[in-house]
Design a protein around this nucleic acid. Structure first.
Length: 411
RNA sequence: GGAGGAGUUCCCGAGUGGUCAAAGGGAUCAGACUGUAAAUCUGACGGCUAUCGCCUUCGUAGGUUCAAAUCCUACCUCCUCCA
């Protein structure tokens, strides 16, 4: 059993760092005091909706906060919302979400478990499925649960309200989502529930229900929502503006370098463990021009890759980036493509077919398009002929666009 | 239960018999520039094809027509209103 960090101030500071809101803050202090006094860890809960098979940096904002709780000695519990997932969280949605099939949910859940341990300490993490207590509820119990909240209050939620006002449909079952999530807190007797700011309603529902069921109320700790690579929308798999924590170092590094400059500080704050003071220094440096945005961004990329891979992998990714994008040189390593009969005609390699077969482009039409746009180079020379046929020399290097390379190998 | 509306290319969204591979925006990709795969500007953006060409696409299945995303029939899905 790990010990609880005895310094209240230290705990508070750690918990508050980066948070958007804590409701209510004074109750948190009380809980912490009690926990320290009895050396009894607080139960910290996070619900994950297993709809996305890949965890991305957006999820890690909350996970990292959980990790901090772990390090402070508290017990964290991850709830995989296999049962709630059947409804789909209506939060922020303008339309009813489709319900996922159980098999699909289970598969996603398994992936989640693999991935969250890149941030969390596996030894100290408890994972539960909420079907455990939600599935056995009788209809009567479900009705009882539903009676603990009113339609009017439910409609206060702005996503429901918007849909209601604009005559978009709201399924009755969607009202159950917050109720069920709140009931999770009752089932676990949670002390703290973590979530993004978009989860405010659901987190508060937990407090409400706990009160109804005569329990001590949990504290809602909310983290800001991380913007995705486009700089405006929240990071999400479905918007394609995400960085998955499973992605290879090169990819991750490159994606970070491609984010809008204005997003950098946000990432420092929410996905790295850089101190608040240092982030402030960086901000000043950027503002007065004493620091170069590119260098700051590279540092950010280095730090993030280090977290999810290693310091060394980060260095390599950086070298690769410099070489390919700053000096426009070929990378040290590139995929090798063995020439096959399919791309040869009359003893010559047909370029469009080659590009398509090597998956450098999606098809021969796109291959021709790329050549037309001057995006294709053979050994550094821009190709002009859309339908080029050629006999490759050994070690011929083909480049498409800025970042796709292959090295040809004779059959 | 009754009445009405909608389903278009990755997304949003125009298009109501030929001039439609289908406006516009977004996303994406490429080129230029650069400080980076930022920003900005320009261009491309169904597939196949050694340029004129061919094939597939507008919810699904049929039909009318020389010709349909556009008209008709049935079906599926979604939405709204009345009860």
């Amino acid at each position: 059993m790990s010990l609880i960090e005895p310094d209240l101030e230290k705990q508070l500071q750690q918990i508050q760092r980066g948070t958007a809101e804590i409701i209510p803050e004074n109750a948190l202090v009380e809980k912490l005091k009690k926990s320290i006094k009895n050396n009894k860890p607080l139960t910290v809960k996070l619900g994950l909706d297993p709809t996305a098979p890949d965890i991305h940096l957006g999820h890690t904002v909350v996970l990292q906060k959980l990790r901090q709780f772990q390090d402070l000695g508290h017990q964290i519990i991850i709830i995989l919302g296999d049962y709630t997932g059947r409804i789909g969280d209506p939060t922020g949605k303008s339309e009813t979400r489709k319900q996922l099939m159980t098999a699909e949910l289970m598969e996603n859940a398994a992936t989640y478990q693999q991935q969250i341990y890149k941030v969390l300490d596996a030894e100290k993490t408890k994972i539960v499925f909420n079907s455990e207590w939600l599935a056995p509820l009788t209809f009567e119990q479900a009705i009882n649960l539903a009676s603990k909240y009113t339609v009017a209050r439910m409609l206060e939620r702005d996503d429901f309200q918007k849909r209601f006002k604009t005559n978009l449909s709201i399924g009755i079952h969607e009202f159950f989502y917050p109720l069920m999530q709140g009931y999770d807190s009752v089932a676990l007797k949670a002390d703290i529930e973590l979530g993004g700011t978009d989860q405010k309603f659901n987190l508060l529902m937990g407090r409400h229900l706990q009160k109804e069921y005569h329990q001590e109320q949990q504290i809602a700790v909310m983290m800001p929502i991380l913007e995705g690579l486009d700089g405006t929308n929240k990071m999400s798999k479905s918007l394609g503006n995400y960085i998955g924590i499973d992605e290879p170092p090169h990819e991750m590094y490159g994606k970070i370098m491609s984010m809008p400059d204005q997003l950098m500080l946000r990432y420092f704050e929410l996905v790295t463990s850089e101190s608040v003071e240092e982030i402030a220094r960086i901000a000043t440096g950027l503002q007065d021009g004493s620091r170069h945005p590119r260098d700051i961004k590279m540092r950010l990329a280095r730090e993030i890759v280090s977290i999810y891979h290693s310091v060394q992998a980060a260095k390599q990714a950086e070298e690769h980036f410099k070489q390919v994008f700053q000096q426009h040189k070929n990378p040290d390593e590139m995929p090798v493509f063995k020439i096959t009969g399919a791309v040869i005609e009359d003893g010559k390699v047909v370029l469009p077919k080659l590009l398509a077969t090597a998956k450098l482009v999606s098809g021969t039409s796109e291959a021709r398009r790329m050549v037309k746009q001057g995006a294709v180079r053979i050994n550094g020379v821009v190709v002009e002929d859309v339908n080029l046929r050629f006999v490759p020399e050994p070690e011929t290097i083909i480049k498409v666009g800025k970042r796709k390379f292959i090295k040809l190998q004779a059959p």
